[in-house]
Amino acid sequence: MGRFPGPVGDEIEVIFSACDAQLTAGGKPGAGSAVMRWGEGTVAIHTDFGPAGQDKDSNQDSVLAWIAGEGGEGGGIRWAIAMADGVTSSHYAETGAEIACWTSLAALLSAGGTADEKARAAVDAAGDAIGAVADMIGEEPSRYKPEDVFDSMWSYVLRRGLLLQTTLSLVWLEGGVCHIGMVGDAGAAIEVGPGEVGGRKVLAGPDLKTSRVHAIGPNNRRVERLDCWQQIDSEDVSLLALYTDGVGRGIGPNAGRLFHSFERMGSRAAHGNPAKRLIQDWIRTRGQDFEDNLSLAIVRWDHNR
């Protein structure tokens, strides 16, 4: 990371080192853009700034995937994905999103109990870590004040907790069940069976009508309830897609368009990173529809296709 000087930078380094140790002990993590093979298929993730000319000047999304190693410790989890969308107006939101992904996945893998208890532990870990970093910033506010922000505004930001805020979506496969938990809005969809005869189902859709967002942040460290919590038998699932609202806005309410785009890639989907290919295609051909940071994860089950 190294984005912050002083104690906050040191604290962030400690957080990431601890999470990395946890994740590499039981398997293999992949951040940002990666394709990873698991026993029955592949996990592909990609995050991108999005089309040039949009209002933002940085990618505030973060994506992290993890695949269990042979005999690794994951509590029976085969793979897991964390996707976070930093709140647009929030300061250091990209850091908050990255912290949320790493801390939540590390906590998910080490937590015991039922699936919903694991989800709770993961989300709480993200909130605690973001809160701890925000507290340290608050101890030396002038040191971490962005240059282009007035003192009055920075005081307001700290008082209202308008920093490090992020949504968080988690998906993992455990015991033949896909678990999907979300804080804030994101999109998730599955395809069951081969594309021509199977069905497609939207499990969650981003809120495209308002700019309001439910987010983890310094003033919302312990989220009362998840905005989405679903458990899907993976036996017949052939594809699963998880995406941020930027992708959701572009594809519209019919997530079938996403799978259709995937199918049109044909054999190209089997090579390289299909999530990256799709996002790059959207930016190139329909940039105006996708004016946002764009993050997508695609999980493929080979035997069901």
Binding site: D55, D57, S89, S152, M153, Y156
Partner: peptide, 15 residues
Amino acid sequence: QEMLLECQATGPRGA
């Protein structure tokens, strides 16, 4: 002042 701060807090960061 509160209105100004709320308005400043809206939208992507940057002066």
